[in-house]
Simulated assay, not measured.
Amino acid sequence: MTVEIRVSRSPGERRVALLRDGVLAGYRVERPARPDGVGDTLRGRVVSRLPALAGGFVALPGGESGFLPESECEGRRLPPEGTILTLRVTRAAQSGKGLRISARVKQRPSGPLALLERGPDQALRWAAAHPAAPLVVDDPAELARLRAALGPRATGGAAFDDALESEADSLALPETPLPGGGRLIISPLPALTAVDVDSGGADPREANRQALPELTRQIVLRDLAGPILLDLAGLSLKARGALEPAIRSALVGDGLVQALGFGPLGLFEMKRARIHPPLHEVLADRPLARGLALLRLAAREAAAAPHRVLALSAPAPVLDAIRALPGALEEFAARAGRPLVLRDASLEEVSDA
């Protein structure tokens, strides 16, 4: 099997894709100015012990806090309040839950609350997991950073072709097509994610079997986590039960998922470990997601026409989100050799009227 890592950097954003034999098998959107923190090493202070939760809360640098389970402490006992600890972030803040941290790291000398070491980004994590995989990187600064860490494995080139761009865009949509005309409908909710198999008029048994490989793939690509409920297409409870071995087999390749089986409502229940924020949460800030997509297009136009002065016209919330993301506009100016003019589309409409 051939594994390849593609890294596409645009102002304010990094997109990383993992391909196996040319098929998209992993995808992550990162905002370098706002990393999710997983893998970071921090110095924090125990501020409260909560025996009922078998853990406690720890004050972290930047005014953040994290939950430290007793199971992640030396001797499985939470130290007294006020104790300074060296900690590692094991789960990003997501789904309304804060950072999860561990004290099972080498303790460093006591001191003020601080970020001691930043954890690896997704390109470095996948590079470590696949030491023979080459990396294709489309940005000179990003290429220099990865080459410093990985050597000649990282090479410059077009990271995302049109097909990969299209598939990456489709992951923001709630539906994904299946062979034979069916579809998966993916509905993330605060407490769980519901996945519905729509047969599209095909034989339900065949549609469900076709859905299973794509179900696992979409769960991984979208980084869905927490409780996940699968509603198969048009089968009796007894017939659904007959598909349980096939469902469990399809999920085996995902080491983060735990298959629980069918519940009384005929829904197959599974639970996937929460580590990084799911894709729908990363994209939940619609003005920012839209603004970064427009910056990506503007950067391409600037590269194609290096002497043109470019202006970005967008609604005020989109422009405000771009301005609020540290370094995004500065990164555009550094790449393009000139700043990007921002124009409030609503004011332009008033002027035209």
Rank of each mutant, 00 (worst) to 15 (best):
L42H: 01
V341K: 06
V257S: 05
L60A: 05
A114W: 06
A273R: 14
G55A: 15
V16W: 00
V29E: 09
D161S: 09
R100T: 00
L260D: 14
P188W: 05
G291D: 01
D161G: 09
G98Y: 00
L164R: 01
G82D: 01
G291P: 04
A304R: 14
L319I: 07
A128I: 07
T155F: 07
P177E: 02
R296K: 06
D121G: 14
A128D: 13
L342F: 03
R88Y: 02
G22K: 13
A207D: 08
A17Y: 03
F160Q: 01
R147I: 01
S351L: 14
A207N: 12
I186Q: 02
R49T: 10
E349I: 13
L143R: 01
L143K: 02
L178A: 02
T83V: 07
E281T: 02
A194I: 02
R15K: 12
L221R: 04
G56F: 10
R338D: 00
L229F: 14
G62E: 09
P264G: 12
D320N: 09
W126S: 13
A239V: 07
L237R: 12
S166N: 13
T155Y: 04
G180R: 01
G62P: 10
I5N: 10
K106I: 12
A293E: 09
A17E: 03
A299C: 14
G111Y: 01
L212T: 09
G157R: 00
M1W: 13
G82I: 00
P140T: 05
S102R: 02
A148L: 10
G266Q: 06
P227S: 05
T41R: 15
P11V: 01
L124V: 11
P204I: 15
P131M: 14
L99P: 03
L243A: 04
A25M: 12
E4I: 05
F57Q: 05
P213N: 00
K106E: 13
P190I: 00
L312I: 07
R20D: 10
S351G: 11
G266A: 11
